[in-house]
């Protein structure tokens, strides 16, 4: 077994390979790590590149693929790519779920029943509180989209990002849990995590600090290189953060994977799971 496969099997490096196909987004959330918005540099990964990395990931011992951004569903080719990725490894794709209407929703039909989960952001059961962070009308779009996806046999997870989960009003969180259950998403598919103080959140003085000591090592591929966490390739004042950069080389994938194991894979499994946001 290679050093990379061993580190993954022992939980010293995350079992999922993350990829950033793009950085642009139709929203402009107040805590966005990547300063995403409609007009930002897109930093695109081509679908062929993503598929090649996924094949390499499986050969190296990774057991899943994660797609994040930016809003990946702004890319017209994403549904087709997800169907192909799902033939290689189980997929989770992060989305704001505001684009799942009309032709974009229809394009998701073939994904039903495949090992694909769409993880959707929903921060509050109160429309105003949710929309304050994520933009006007977001709540209504999300609660409309979730049942549409489930109806098509597509797995849905709900991710809630809170300024401080520990001190958050439990009654409000209960109302949110009632809401996701009523939409058809069980508790096992609901994650609550803190705002990470990087990107736009750092500029706004929000969230908890998150560097190499706080985050689980999870190999993450972007157009700018390979990073040690999906929370690594963040953008602040238009500049890419490099504190969690592993290598500029992303192909062959064994190069950044090996470097990540050298840099962080010596830590005991779980030692860095403090933030619980894998």
């Amino acid at each position: 077994m290679s050093a990379v496969a061993e580190a993954i099997a022992e939980g010293r490096v995350g079992e999922r390979l993350w990829l950033y196909p793009n950085y642009h987004c139709n929203l402009r959330c107040t805590y966005c790590l990547t300063e995403s918005a409609p007009g930002v540099p897109r930093r695109l990964l081509e679908p062929e590149t993503i598929l090649e990395r996924a094949h390499e990931a499986r050969a190296l011992g990774f057991t899943g693929v994660g797609i994040t951004g930016g809003e990946p569903f702004l890319l017209d080719w994403l549904p087709e790519l997800l169907a192909e990725l799902a033939q290689i490894l189980p997929v989770i794709v992060l989305s704001n779920a505001t684009l799942f209407t009309g032709r974009r929703l229809a394009a998701l039909e073939p994904l039903g029943g495949l090992p694909i989960h769409i993880q959707i952001s929903l921060d509050s059961a109160e429309p105003d509180a949710n929309d304050e962070m994520r933009g006007s009308g977001n709540f209504a779009e999300v609660v409309a989209a979730i049942p549409e996806l489930l109806r098509r046999g597509i797995g849905v997870r709900v991710a809630t990002t809170l300024e401080d989960p520990a001190s958050h009003d439990p009654a409000e969180l209960d109302r949110l849990c009632e809401l996701h259950r009523s939409l058809g998403v069980g508790d096992e598919d609901h994650v609550v995590r803190p705002v990470i103080r990087r990107g736009r959140a750092a500029a706004g003085g929000m969230g908890v600090p998150a560097g190499a000591d706080e985050l689980d090592p999870e190999l993450t591929i972007t157009a700018d290189g390979a990073f040690a966490s999906p929370f690594g390739p963040t953008v602040r004042a238009g500049a890419l953060d490099t504190d969690l950069l592993v290598t500029r080389t992303t192909s062959p994938l064994a190069v950044p994977a090996g470097a990540l194991v050298r840099a962080l894979g010596g830590r005991a499994a779980g030692h860095d799971a403090r933030l619980g946001i894998r």
């Binding site: 190499a212 040690a228 953060d241 490099t242 504190d243 969690l244 950069l245 592993v246 290598t247 470097a259 050298r262 840099a263 962080l264």
Partner: peptide, 10 residues
């Protein structure tokens, strides 16, 4: 130059 706060892991 890459400032110390932005120094990559390696």
């Amino acid at each position: 130059p890459v400032e110390p706060a932005q120094a990559p892991l390696l």
